[in-house]
Design a protein around this nucleic acid. Structure first.
Lengths: 229, 229
DNA sequence: AATCCTCAGCTTGTCTGACAACCCGAGGAG
DNA sequence: CTCCTCGGGTTGTCAGACAAGCTGAGGATT
């Protein structure tokens, strides 16, 4: 058999087709789609198939069905998730954006840090020291926890959310890097002072110093990422 | 039958319930859900209803159904979209993050700017001057276009994507601000020099100056946002 | 005339039963 | 030992039926 007769799932095909027609502007936002029976007849499939296709698109936030009224267009462009954008991007690009976020976070944190924030940061710092001999994965996660505590001290939820978005992609890349460069074989680890100095600067409320230290630390990482040999 | 569902849309309720159970960790990523007939019996609904609930979740990327195999867990946490996070946040928080993005972008752009980038930036600058007398909305959009050109010159797709995400939320807030403060009534506009200086610094490859000018400009806006009276 | 009510007709929501398409592993054939 | 077949379990699709809900037209009421 050379030609596959019906390659895929009808409901998926129908959903794709409808999504394409939505993106092409066949139905504007707020307008009503043809009825399920009409669509089913148009595409030559059963009504349950059409319904599943519509549910697929509704789950993606494109459509909204209301009993007795009809199915209306909610959006015509697929929602962009942070994950989907980050996936497949060059790690260097991601790290550059992380720099932007963290340097600014350090600067803001210096002006807003509370007693509790300082305690959190120092706790994370201690955990990072403990994790150093344990393993690459553990060490990287403890390291990121320090940075997370600094970002949290900036008290900006959008910034924190953004930071968390980057964490998964960064954790993998950093673990590879730590393993590759054998960072944990060295003793004492070279970055320990960086982190302590950063936390001290934030705790002291020195915004310029906090930003400067953060930038220096992250630029060093960026350089390592760019030439991993 | 575990929980009798009867109120509104059964499929939606079933989807919510399954999503909650997923988030609670009842089924780990990669594991197989009970069969459709089993789930239907458990929730006391028909199989088609369960199927629509599963399609809803599949559309959100949580599940993945494969014929002959079963329905498996793809993710357990709902995908976070940029829109959903930005919506409802304090505008000051958003502007702070914009600062982080744009200052870093200006710094990077100074090191990577091409001849074409410079041409784009100057074109946007000229358009901004033209739009000044036209209207608030037009002026704000032309203003943002200048910033967009600077970000584009950084040649970092993640950064650009992030910038575009913030644009809708910023456009509204800035339009309000421009109208409220009557910025366009003044002549000549005070910010014109800021923008020109920023573009010049980027074109000249002066990273520190570009970052400094960008920061000064955006901090001024932040101050205006914080005290709009 | 203006307002309220009722109802027909359309829409989506749900259920049932049936069969097709498909995947996987067990167990036999070679 | 390898290959093949086949059975059981799973999702995919369909048709038909009825329930539930909304909308607007038009009659009934004030």
């Amino acid at each position: 058999m050379i030609a596959p007769l019906r390659r895929n799932l009808l409901a998926d095909q129908a959903a794709d087709l409808l999504a394409r027609r939505l993106e092409d502007g066949e139905w504007a936002v707020g307008t009503k789609l043809p009825g399920e029976t009409t669509l089913a007849a148009e595409l030559g499939v059963g009504r349950s198939t059409i319904r599943e296709a519509l549910r697929l698109l509704a789950g993606r936030g494109l459509l909204r069905a209301r009993q007795g009224v009809g199915v209306h267009v909610e959006r015509t462009t697929p929602a962009v998730t942070w994950e989907s954008v980050l996936r497949g991007r060059e790690i260097a690009d991601v790290v550059e954006v992380r720099n932007a976020i963290e340097v600014e976070a350090a600067r803001l944190a210096a002006g807003r840090v509370t007693r509790d924030d300082v305690a959190d940061m120092r706790r994370a710092l201690a955990r990072r020291d403990e994790a150093f001999p344990v393993g690459d994965r553990e060490f990287v996660e403890a390291d990121i926890a320090v940075h997370r505590a600094v970002v949290a001290a900036a008290h900006n939820p959008v910034l924190s959310e953004l930071f968390e978005t980057f964490v998964p992609r960064l954790t993998d890349a950093m673990t590879d890097m730590v393993a590759l460069l054998g960072i944990r074989d060295r003793d004492p680890e070279p970055d320990a002072d960086d982190h302590r100095a950063l936390v001290d600067a934030v705790a002291a409320g020195d915004a310029d110093a906090a930003a400067r230290i953060s930038r220096a630390h992250l630029d060093a990482m960026l350089a390592a990422v760019r030439s991993p040999r």
